[in-house]
Write a protein that binds this DNA or RNA. Structure first.
Length: 298
DNA sequence: GTGTTTGTTATCAA
DNA sequence: CTTGATAACAAACA
């Protein structure tokens, strides 16, 4: 389940490897993964270079460099949803995205030699590198949008980034006031904060010592402050550790994230709480598996 | 055959 | 208007 730290890890790696690279071929193996008409999608990319790679929340945004005479800027949006992977395979074979990886490790991560049965789109570069979009469950997508559409999507769908100055105790206080949904549902809402998903919401609430089912409007001043600091700390630490691999997330080199071993509650139902050693409770909230400590979180 | 996993959107109901 | 619940999307795994 790629959330902000995982997508940011992919973004940073791709910035190092494909900025300025020219796309020479695009292959759509599963039509519905490309959200534009196939002919337009391919034409918008082939013969163009990647100019920038940005991100808002869990959405990756590749800016496509326009040629002379084409004045409107286009962007390639990539959303991994639940099981999407972006894998860059360098020409040759042994190295993937500039890193060498044992064949065993690579095969268990991405399901063997690429393309495989989960490969939906392949983007080939002039230097021979190939970028594979794999997606077991087909929820993920790639979409070409112009500047105007991009701005609309960001404005309509995404609140402040957790590590930006726009997310503050003041912002949270204002948004939480009189909210009658639970704090977990609030934190999962991309329009409130961009980029948090099930893992980092559970982890942030554990650090903030707040029960996920608490009504958002019921948090007091010191709880809001601690929550703000906890989100910051968790997201920073998760990015430093290249994200969490729980199910099938891997970075663009096929490597797993290191934050998994630092998880306090997520995926640890019935295991002892790292703080008080009592059993972590696993229940369902906001339609999601929810993990918390009934003793440490109030 | 059942339940579970989750990012996002749509739809319906209170 | 707000919120919650549910399905849909789709596939694998226990």
């Amino acid at each position: 389940m790629p959330e902000l730290p995982e997508v940011e890890t992919i973004r940073r790696d791709l910035v190092e490897s494909i900025i300025g690279s020219e796309i020479v071929a695009v292959k759509i193996l599963y039509l519905k993964t490309a959200k534009n008409k196939a002919a337009f999608f391919v034409k918008a990319l082939e013969g163009h270079k990647i100019e920038e790679i940005n991100r808002i929340g869990k959405l990756l945004i590749l800016k496509i460099k326009q040629k002379n005479g084409e004045n409107e800027s286009l962007h390639l949006l990539v959303h991994l949803k639940m099981t999407g992977q972006l894998i860059l395979v360098s020409k040759g074979k042994k190295t993937v995205g500039g890193h060498s990886l044992s064949e065993d490790s690579f095969e268990s991560s991405v399901g063997g030699e690429l393309p495989n049965r989960h490969t939906r789109i392949i983007i080939e570069f002039k230097n021979g590198d190939r970028l594979f979009f794999n997606d077991l469950r087909k929820f993920g997508y790639l979409k070409i949008v112009d500047e105007l559409e991009l701005e609309k999507i960001i404005a309509k769908g995404y609140g402040p980034e957790p590590l930006s100055l726009k997310l503050s105790v003041k912002y949270l206080t204002e948004k939480l006031r009189n909210k009658k949904k639970n704090i977990k549902a609030f934190l999962l809402d991309q329009k409130m904060i961009a980029g948090l998903g099930n893992i980092y919401v559970d982890e942030s609430l554990f650090l903030a010592k707040i029960r996920p089912m608490r009504l958002a409007g019921s948090l007091n001043e010191s709880e809001i402050k601690l929550l703000y600091q906890s989100i910051n700390k968790i997201i920073k630490k998760a990015i430093e550790n290249r994200g969490t691999t729980f199910n099938n997330y891997v970075d663009s080199s096929g490597r797993k994230g290191n934050f998994s071993r630092l998880l306090n509650v997520y995926g640890r139902g019935k295991l002892p709480c790292p703080t008080c050693k009592k059993e972590i409770i696993k229940t369902k909230l906001a339609g999601r598996g929810t993990h918390y400590c009934g003793y440490c979180q109030n």
